[in-house]
Design a protein around this nucleic acid. Structure first.
Lengths: 338, 338
DNA sequence: TTGAAAGCGCTACCAC
DNA sequence: GTGGTAGCGCTTTCAA
């Protein structure tokens, strides 16, 4: 069953059938009706491959993410997929892992698949130094970074100012009496670097404000169990009175460690994922506005497809979600206003 | 840059170039070498759409899941994607939600995309009564159910005997002294029905064994917060001394409720996801062997593509992962052996 | 082993 | 408004 069959049954040419399928402009209402009825009756669907060949697109968009098993990324992928589907695009999903070479290779493969755009989900998709592969990809198709930033033509960035979020959090912890802070993380991604900067900046500002606090960052590679175990060892030697986890998973694991040691330490996570709710005590978390980032990213992409001008770098502000593990006595930013 | 350019530069016909690209059979080593070198130098990649049109496949496989944002499904998607990529297939991802019509429609759309197979991830992709759409799809391409079961030609099922897992768990709880059990769930999926059956079966067996316990199942639709709130209300009126959650998320939410009420109740979740680790006390969980299911599913699919005969229904056994929320005094199945 | 040529099913341009 | 037809880039059959 192909376009020729439909043309024959309708008593028209394939050109007319094609027109009807693609929006029916300059087709008489009568012809249109006939053809549509035949298509309906025959249960005909145009061949996607042939269509792709002719139009040079199959309305597919590549989603690259280091790991969908990560709750936070999974959530973003879900939101992006939903928005893209609504706009009539299919999603080609690839997990890349964190190795630079794998990420580059995967991006190259996506280009060969002739996707209409590529979305790099999460800051882990961005390299610290050399992002030339992203620039190269952008020469062919739009590249969207969700929570990342690479400047270049045909590249759309949407990100959260996590540095600011952590900076404020540090200041809030200091004003709440914390004097010895720890920042735990497991991977030094782009986003993590920003958070670390915020951590240092916050400490510095506390010093200037006359409430000096010392702080260290500690890297524990691995998953939940490794972090929990190593954090326990670390905290036994280096107790702290305020802890920030680079993400909720890390925060929960560290929380477990403090509980084992009988230390009751103010604790904050990042991402505001279900893990922060699930923990006991529930963990206060810095929400990096995944939903806002995702909807903005897709909106910008669709605008770009429509030929509109689009902001090449959108920055959204994080939001502190207060739960049980740390309740602020004062709120950074608001004190200045008073 | 197309196959004609390569043919010209190599001094051969496009037929020969095509042969070289597709495995180089019946091509002289010398020609082969020349063509490969030209392809290399030109950085040529065959057009995926044209290839799809010719071969009637683009080596893409559709993954249908009710919601990737669900930690458990996300984990399965990650494992499936990895295995498929290794076998040279791309993954087309679609979240369907739980409405039957949406699921049917999405499946139909996947078929139109000419994917090589469809994988339905999670028992929520299966309807209780009418699965004719799955049978119909299977007339065109292989359909794989991960943790589901629909009998039919060209349908491969891999599932976990969750009924058995819950049945054993109930018996273990009874033998450990629980006399009033509660089973909480939020959606009555295929898998949930199995678990419920196991719950009832376990209770019945306890009765027969002379350790009668009463039990009820309670459905709370909604997400984490709704479950937590409603469970608290329910438990205030109907305290229990043993609780099973249909999944870890539910278990954690109910755990929170018990903690608010000051009830310290033996509790078991299902899925053995990171949530069960993250909770405090850590939640014992029935592991339904997601990894085994996924690897088996892909292995069977690849075998099917290879024309081998493949088991149409594989059942794996669940595994009880003991943590802090419930420690078994005796183990179901082992007592019989003694 | 190689080449010529006929599809694959559709889109889009150019006539009428 | 409609039809004829030349591509799109590849695979594959049939001859040579």
């Amino acid at each position: 069953m192909n376009i020729y069959d439909i043309a024959q049954k309708s008593g028209v040419s394939i050109a007319t059938v094609s027109r009807v399928i693609n929006g029916g402009r300059s087709v008489s209402p009568k012809t249109q009706e006939t053809v549509l009825r035949v298509i309906q009756e025959a249960g005909y669907t145009p061949n996607a491959f042939a269509r792709g060949l002719g139009l040079n697109t199959m309305r597919q968009i590549g989603l690259l993410v280091s790991d969908v098993a990560d709750t936070y990324y999974a959530n973003e992928v879900a939101m992006l997929e939903k928005a893209l589907r609504k706009a009539g695009f299919d999603v080609l999903l690839r997990c890349t892992g964190t190795e630079t070479d794998k990420k580059k290779e995967t991006l190259a493969q996506m280009l060969k698949r002739h996707v209409d755009a590529v979305i790099l989900v999460g800051s882990s998709m961005q390299e610290q130094d050399d992002n030339s592969h992203i620039l190269e990809a952008a020469e062919q198709i739009p590249v969207i970074l969700v929570n990342g930033c690479v400047k270049g033509k045909n590249i759309i960035c949407v990100r959260c100012d996590e540095m600011e979020g952590v900076r404020c959090c540090v200041r809030d912890m200091c004003s709440s009496g914390c004097r010895s802070l720890l920042f735990f993380y497991h991977t030094l991604s782009f986003s993590c670097r920003q958070k670390l900067k915020g951590f240092q900046l916050g400490l510095k500002e506390c010093q200037e404000k006359g409430t000096p606090a010392k702080g260290s960052d500690v890297c524990i590679p691995g998953g939940f169990d490794e972090i929990m175990a190593s954090a326990e060892n670390y905290l036994r030697e280096h107790p702290a009175d305020g802890i920030i986890g680079a993400d909720d998973m890390t925060a929960v694991a560290v929380q477990k460690a403090t509980q084992k040691l009988g230390q009751m330490v103010p604790l904050v996570g990042i991402n505001n994922s279900i893990l922060s709710k699930a923990a006991t005590p529930a963990i206060s978390s810095i929400d990096n506005m995944a939903e806002t980032m995702c909807t903005t990213a897709i909106k910008n992409l669709l605008d770009l497809f429509d030929g509109k001008r689009v902001p090449e770098d959108t920055v959204v502000s994080p939001e502190f979600i207060e739960r049980e593990s740390f309740v602020r006595k004062s709120v950074c930013g608001q004190e200045e206003l008073q």
